[in-house]
Design a protein around this nucleic acid. Structure first.
Length: 876
DNA sequence: CCCGGGCAGC
């Protein structure tokens, strides 16, 4: 193989007319001669060839040389003109001895420029078939061609087979690996390069800094920084600029700032790096300050500056500056710059100006996937989920392929609009297109499933994520909390701590689980953690903490924390209003509601639900009507089902059964089972069997599968001692095979959770509990307590036993608390269903005889038993 | 020939 190159390089020897042996030895020469005569030689030369052999030989060799030079020249000419096809053709048809190294190189260079891997491969195979040695020069060209044409693997293969003393080739590969995100490979090459004794140059350092920054390796960045100074690259702008960027990416704002301050010769990239660095570190306002400085100093602004500053505007919501920059951009001729248009679109959207965003989108000529994703996100941001989904479909019909960003946005739209089916469609798209490995996509999908109530599907994704980030954990924990699976939430919270550190959002996600379980001890631990980390300043955390204490029964503490929140939003106020309501402090709820309005916060639907429930739990009928009417008249909010439900409840609890019935019959929207259920509960309290039957008909029609209402009606019958009807209902339920609703209560004592179910005799202290309850029962009977309440049934199983003395779980839990807690402590019991009337009476009596305060939380509200009275005053 | 800063998402 080396022979052909040697021949080319020793070509001048052919000029020796006496040396024809050389020429005869070479089999190529004849071919050369033949071809030359047919293609290039003039007839006169041809004539001469008929002379003596020596003469002929001399002439021919001379001619052959000229022809060969012509071919190489011609190839180079083709290359210069950019005629890749002819260059490759000529290269292919030429004899190997005709070709100079430079010709291969020129064609490979053109292949690279054209990014034509196909042609590049063809040239490579010509090189191989011509028996060329792939030395450092040719190898470098091949590597260059392959890398530029996108075949990094083949480029690397050749690279590994040649001697590499050129730093640029190392840089090329390193930067290519960095471009595709394979930073580790890039770092590996850098190390190998150093081991090979090749000194890095400014390109190597800018590249390696990018990689370490992307890998968030602060220490490595600092080491490279030191190295750069030692080697004297500290005055190279590109190097310092990339150092600044690297520090910012690692969150080392100070380090970046220092470099910038010391940089004497700042160019536009230095300024842009400062602006973007500030923006990515949540310092958009500082970024804007740098921009102003830059303008004052008269530094030329480029399109990257504009993009960075627009992002800062979007982050701080500075629409007026954004608009001004829009105008500047148009003047500067950036109207067709797609990246600027995308950024403008997003800026308008984030500043709450959907019209502006749509306007940019409609007017921009070229759109990319980023434009579509941004406009979709803009609609999602405004809550226009259906429009967002419509745009997504439109985009797909235009043949644009959604990427991971588009997918996350649209999945978010599905989550917010409860579109489980559409969400599943997108999930399938994700699976088909192998986007499942993107963590944000997985997180968004989990969030979507959680919001749509399918924690099974959310968990399936979660369990397949190899390395979960904090968002993954928070999404799952919050999902379990929101879906009333507090045990799963707390369990996952424990699991999480083995893998990553919880943040403020984790706190806001896990606290509702504590609230749901009334897990006061856990809640207190989390409170302590919040204080240590300073998370209380986050409104969501503070709000969740208040809610947790409310639901764990510590209303006073909740109120104190609430007062400590400087800027309360609607949700915070609503939590407190609902808290007062649940605990039977209707008057305080009302005054909190008024304070909220004084603070300039307009109530929304949910606020009215809370205040109406508060009125309901305190029996404030007049006030309830007032709020109910003011919703529409003052706030222009039409009462929804839940507001009617509150009013029906309120009427029922204040003994206005017929008015409640009338309200249901005249309400403008169709009443649901819950509303009828409220009336049915009222029938039970008022022992109105006749109305109960009428109401139950409506309910069974609406929700034939819901056990709760069968049990409720059965209770009405039982309390009226209508045993035949109880049996009939029991048969009905038996036939339908309805699921039972198991009642249970729990209490924390010395950090240990004790759970009780009705009729539970398995507890180690069952006997002690039983004897306490017996004593109380005797006392109650002596006091003339009506035994009608004793027939209270709680679930289907109870009915099988037909009539039994009420041995409900809340009673057992309360008794356990009284027996095991030191006097002076509050007994805190939580029940998953509503408290039964008999247990309620027992609670009151227990608080009187033991002089202990008992706080019982049921599924509806709180009951503070103290000195024989309950805070609910009968409104439960 | 290889170079620093820039757009969308949980």
């Amino acid at each position: 193989m080396s022979k052909s190159i040697a021949m080319l390089s020793t070509w001048p020897t052919y000029h020796n007319p006496n040396n024809n042996s050389n020429y005869a030895k070479s089999p190529n020469c004849f071919f050369l001669f033949r071809q030359s005569t047919t293609t290039c030689l003039s007839p006169s030369n041809f004539d001469l060839s008929c002379g003596s052999s020596i003469f002929v030989s001399a002439t021919l060799s001379e001619t052959a040389h000229n022809v060969t030079v012509d071919k190489n020249v011609q190839i180079c000419k083709f290359c210069e003109m950019g005629d890749l096809r002819n260059a490759v053709e000529l290269l292919k048809s030429a004899q190997r001895s005709e070709l100079e190294l430079n010709s291969y190189c020129s064609v490979l260079q053109l292949c690279a420029e054209r990014k034509s891997l196909e042609d590049g491969k063809r040239v490579h195979s010509i090189i191989i078939s011509n028996g060329m040695v792939i030395d450092a020069v040719l190898g470098a060209k091949l590597v260059f061609m392959y890398v530029i044409c996108g075949d990094l693997v083949e480029g690397r293969r050749i690279f590994d087979g040649i001697l590499n003393d050129k730093v640029f080739l190392w840089n090329l590969l390193m930067s290519e690996y960095a471009k595709i995100g394979n930073y580790k490979e890039s770092v590996g090459l850098f190390k190998k390069m150093q081991e090979s004794g090749i000194r890095g140059d400014s390109y190597s350092f800018t590249c390696i800094l990018k990689c370490f920054a992307a890998l968030a390796k602060v220490r490595e960045c600092k080491r490279v920084h030191g190295y750069i100074l030692k080697l004297g690259f500290g005055s190279y702008n590109a190097v310092v600029n990339s150092l600044i960027a690297a520090y910012f990416k690692c969150g080392e704002v100070e380090g970046a700032r220092n470099l910038f301050d010391k940089l004497s010769d700042r160019d536009v990239v230095s300024w842009n790096s400062m602006i973007s660095g500030c923006v990515m570190n949540g310092l958009s306002r500082n970024g804007l300050e740098f921009f102003i400085q830059m303008l004052n100093l008269g530094v030329d602004v480029d399109s990257a500056t504009l993009v960075n500053v627009l992002v800062a505007c979007a982050n701080v919501g500075n629409l007026s500056l954004g608009r001004a920059l829009h105008a500047c951009g148009v003047k500067a001729g950036f109207s067709e710059d797609v990246m600027i248009n995308n950024t403008l679109l997003d800026m308008y959207s984030k500043c709450g100006n959907l019209n502006g965003a749509t306007d940019v989108f409609v007017k921009m000529g070229e759109t990319t996937i980023v434009s579509w994703t941004s406009i979709i996100a803009a609609y999602v941001r405004e809550g226009l989920y259906d429009d967002a989904i419509g745009l997504f479909d439109e985009m797909r019909s235009k043949g644009l392929r959604p990427d991971i960003y588009t997918v996350t946005s649209i999945v978010h739209a599905c989550a917010c609009s409860n579109s489980l089916d559409k969400g599943r469609d997108v999930h399938n798209y994700v699976k088909k297109n192998n986007m499942g490995s993107s963590l944000p996509v997985s997180n968004a999908l989990m969030n979507m499933y959680a919001k749509c109530g399918s924690m099974e599907e959310a968990h399936l994704i979660f369990s397949h994520i190899p390395v979960k980030d904090i968002v993954s954990w928070n999404t799952m924990i919050g999902g379990y909390s929101q879906n009333s699976l507090p045990n799963e939430a707390l369990e996952l919270f424990l699991d999480m701590q083995k893998h990553s550190k919880p943040d403020d959002i984790t706190m806001a996600c896990v606290l509702p689980a504590c609230a749901g379980l009334a897990a006061l001890e856990k809640g207190r631990q989390i409170h302590a953690h919040i204080l240590r980390k300073g998370y209380f300043s986050d409104l969501h955390v503070a709000c969740a903490l208040v809610d947790m204490y409310v639901k764990c029964g510590l209303l006073v503490l909740a109120q104190q924390l609430f007062d400590m929140i400087p800027k309360k939003d609607l949700i915070t106020w609503t939590v407190m209003i609902a808290g007062y309501g649940m605990h039977g402090f209707g008057v305080e709820a009302i005054s909190t509601f008024e304070k909220m309005r004084t603070a300039g916060i307009e109530p929304e639907e949910s606020s009215f639900t809370s205040i109406l429930y508060a009125c309901c739990h305190s029996g404030l009928l007049k006030e309830g009507w007032k709020f109910f009417y003011s919703m529409k008249s003052e706030c222009n909010i039409m009462p929804k089902l839940e507001h009617y439900a509150c009013m029906v409840d309120l009427l029922v609890r204040t003994g206005n059964l017929s008015k409640a019935y009338k309200l249901i019959q005249t309400m403008p929207i169709k009443p649901d089972a819950k509303i009828w259920g409220a009336l049915l509960s009222g029938c039970r309290i008022n022992h109105d069997v006749e109305l109960a039957e009428k109401v139950a008909e409506h309910i069974f029609e609406l929700e034939p599968e819901n056990t709760r209402y069968y049990v409720l009606l059965a209770n009405v019958y039982a309390e009226a001692e209508k045993w035949e009807e109880v049996k009939t209902l029991q048969r009905k339920i038996g036939k339908r095979g309805l699921k039972k609703d198991q009642g249970c209560s729990w209490i924390e004592v010395e950090g240990k959770l004790n759970i009780f179910v009705a009729g539970d005799t398995s507890h180690p202290q069952a006997q002690r509990i039983d004897s306490l309850l017996r004593k109380l029962r005797m006392k109650m009977n002596r006091g003339g307590y009506s035994n009608k309440m004793r027939y209270a049934l709680i679930n289907v199983d109870d009915m099988k036993k037909e009539v039994l003395l009420c041995g409900h779980s809340e009673k057992l839990a309360m008794a356990f608390g009284v027996l095991n807690l030191p006097s002076g402590r509050t007994v805190r019991v939580t029940k998953n269903l509503r408290v039964c009337g008999d247990c309620h009476e027992v609670g009151k009596l227990m608080s009187k005889t033991t002089r202990m305060e008992i706080v019982l939380r049921d599924s509806n509200r709180f009951h503070h038993f103290k000195d024989g009275l309950c805070s609910c005053r009968g409104f439960w």
